[in-house]
Design a protein around this nucleic acid. Sequence first.
RNA 1: GCUAAUGUAGCUCAGUUGGCUAGAGCAGCUGAUUUGUAAUCAGCCGGUCGGGGGUUCGAGUCCCUCUAUUAGCACCA
Length: 643
Amino acid sequence: MINLKFPDGSERKYPEPLTAIEVAKDIGSDVGRSALCVDIDGEMFDLRHEIDRDSNIRFIDFSDEKGKEIYWHSTSHIMAQAVVRLFPNVKVAIGPAIEQGFYYDFESEPFTDEDLLKIEKEVKKITKENHRFERKEVSREEAIEMFSSKGEIYKVELIEALPEGETISVYTNGEFSDLCRGPHLMSSSVVKKFKILSTSGAYWRGDSNNAMLQRIYGISFPTQEEMDLFLKIREEAEKRDHRKLGRELDLFSFHPEAPGIPFYHHKGVILKQLLIDYWRYEHDIDGYREIQTPQLMTKSLWETSGHWMNYKENMFVTEMEGSENALKPMNCPGGMLWYKSKLHSYRELPIRVSELGHVHRKEFSGALTGLFRVIAFTQDDAHIFMRADQIKDEILGVIRLTHRIYKTFGLDYSLALSTRGEKYIGRPEDWDIATKGLKDALDEYGQEYVIHEGDAAFYGPKIDIYVKNALGKAWQCGTVQLDMNLPERFDLNYIDESSEKKRVIMIHRALYGSIERFLGIILEHFGGFFPMWLAPVQISIIPVSDKYNDFATEVHSRLIKEGFRVEYDDRSEKVGYKIREADGVKKIPYMLVIGEKERDTGKFTVRRHKSNDTFELEIDEIILKLREECKERILPEGYKVEL
RNA sequence: GCUAAUGUAGCUCAGUUGGCUAGAGCAGCUGAUUUGUAAUCAGCCGGUCGGGGGUUCGAGUCCCUCUAUUAGCACCA
């Protein structure tokens, strides 16, 4: 008797061993249809896997992350099958599922658009041909023989890299066999909707010293509805592209004369300034003191900090009267000199020093993307100098500050702790203390976090903070890094209770990361429809005709004197035309249409952006209401995409 | 930096296999209109077709090169 337990607590007994798919069908036709693979006692298997003993069984379908992964992974095999059919000379490399779909790498001539169309057609054909995915376990020798006879050198390399004793399995769908751990779908016909998304070059094993392969990205879904939703989100992302919005809202521009460095237009400057004002407000609450250090500093400083050794390729170096200077790529060395400008007592600690430093870094030309990756940017940096017993509380303070700021923008975030890697400086026991400090802070904070083993900077462990925008796209913004290197190099001390010099402990941290990137993120997050407090233009005044210009001008200047950012559209156009531009194009939060009724009654009809909602109030009431909305930093409605 | 693609007016795009003076919509300007909640009408202006070199009787179109941009890779805030 085989006894199977299911997640809902139910149990089933079978007299003979049987396959997972038989169990699924036995439970019900819908489970039999939707199941993609099976979790048996925490391990994933194909549906054809035979169950011969008591187990905990969970069927996985497409709604499960794991199910998606298997679905996409199987589709990547099918795509490779199609490519090999059409181009017999290509060599196959690897083809994993990724967060959104999958890719497969080939050694081949670059694929043309026509090639991709052919491949897409062939994949659809293969899915209809209904090939079973057959699993076979083979010995290392068999596997090597099998792939080297076909000239599949990348597969052979992968097999040779597998650890001794590892089970080697090969999956065959139709005429195509691939080295693969699995599990896989039952057959190619489970894949219903398929689309090639893009192609690009990609280095073999992700190493730029290796050959460049041709990568094809694709996606697949069980239903057209799911495919449509996916495409809709992509379309929305395109509409919200910050480079497009930046131009449309007249915030910034790029010019070939300064690749990778933005030109801020008037409204962009306002936006940037508002971000900074808010940032200062929150930092004042937490007792930060703001400083500014020079843009240009001598070679000797960068030698002391270690940048001249480790970072020189990324720095802009200039020469003056025979001596070399560099534009700062980071703010820390300047901050260290600030700390050294006087003696510090243990009573002063912790000292929180912030700096909105404009830094320059040389980047590979291919890395630049709009505001997300630029050559010159403003970091919202701060350095905290402290004693060892203050680490946990200071880190916690930074995380809580970050939380306040991100929530103000309606951004969700996740946390990651990076621990010591192979290359590191300092004593392991100091690393342990530092890492424990970060970990304790995270544990006390209570939000889940992941650990990136060995991912720390060489000078200390760190916490990275990732934000997720309204379209689900994640970006690293904030970072909290413990630095055990610079206090040493700059000989930074404080005087302790017994009048002795002690080495100070220092963290670097940034919350926006860079103002540029953060601005790009929230532009896409809000789709250009900013909250009232952040909108470069908050109110558009729209006179019905120029008969009411005098009165409209009065209202305009009143609102400006009350501190609002107001635009006045006195063009000789119809109201509908002006509304369309103010709302749909410029994305201004409020519109005031002014005509006879307003002049005679003193009551204004206020139109809120992106809706046909209007409300009627007197001017003083409007001022109070909108001022309150700014003060509370109320988030706009409907900026999140319905998924 | 690597792979591929792209670059025509401020923006979005047409422009056949090379062939008259390079087109359109929007924006802008001028005039008419005096408008009540998502596009009023008419006229005008606007381009060394990214730069340079080449092939050709002739290049926006073909080739080379540089440059910028885009999607990835690699690197990173």
